[in-house]
Nucleic acid binder design. Structure first.
Lengths: 152, 152
DNA sequence: ATTGAAAGATACAAGTC
DNA sequence: GACTTGTATCTTTCAAT
């Protein structure tokens, strides 16, 4: 991970579809060198994939929320099965498992506030392992476009 | 947004770097048709960009946490400036602004638990607008690879 | 709106320093 | 490890359906 690798990783996070020639010119090396570096970054697992980003509003999912869930008992089985259950729901974007093991944070995106209410009622209310529940609507979510390596 | 658009959006989320030919063959149309659909999806803002995904561990950021922050007073200025402050910190991945306006959720990735402690102390402890603070280490974060449109 | 073919640009591999 | 050159493949445009 030298300076060149870091520059390539940064530019690929910003635009994964620029041509290898363009990327090479931007970071100041020959195209073949750049291609080899990108290949190496993928093989080493630094770059894990290339993905299109979508607009949630355009996908009829303009309302986002965070669902804070507490489950019991604190067995591996309960935690794993709740996580699998949540990830299988179409409304869910991602699931955070928090240390301690009793807390989940579920990030969802749904068509409307009304459908959020229905979703919570239909998919979470009945579950016996849930002993605590709180939902917050997201007013705004800013993700950093480029994630840089931190100094050791 | 017909079936073809949905299929293209799904496949581009899974792999943004497959060739147009390959994508066309997968969804069952001619390459030129596929190219025109992708262009239209970008122009309509359904697909907002193409980005490389990186491994946080490889970037020396193997420890993730969620910082729950409450600020006061509830003025637009305080909220905006706190958000801008957080987004400018290299350790921060994303910031959620929650409805009500008093709550932020800050997603961070740092090299170690020790550096998390230092980060919280150095960057949040001193700030006068913060009236509540709680941090949770993330044991696991599963993001769904493909986000699908929901029915109206 | 979709298609097929033609023109220009690109990725990728081989060989050299 | 990086660069230059050559070839196969791809993107992109355009006239036609």
């Amino acid at each position: 991970m030298d300076e060149l690798d870091a520059a390539i990783v940064a530019h690929l996070q910003a635009d994964a579809r620029q041509t290898n020639r363009e990327l090479a010119r931007t970071v100041g090396v020959a195209p073949s060198t750049c291609l080899e570096r990108v290949r190496s970054l993928r093989e080493r697992g630094v770059v894990t994939g290339f993905h299109a980003e979508v607009d949630l509003g355009e996908l009829n999912r303009g309302v986002q929320a965070l669902l804070h869930v507490q489950v019991r008992p604190l067995s591996r089985t309960v935690i794993q099965s709740f996580k699998a259950y949540a990830m299988a729901l179409p409304e869910v974007l991602s699931v955070f498992v928090l240390t301690g093991g009793d807390d989940f944070l579920v990030h969802v995106a749904v068509p409307s506030v009304g459908s959020l209410h229905a979703f919570v009622m239909d998919k979470f209310s009945g579950r016996r392992e849930i002993v605590g529940f709180r939902s917050s609507v997201i007013y705004e979510h800013s993700r950093k476009p480029i994630i840089e390596p931190l100094d050791v």
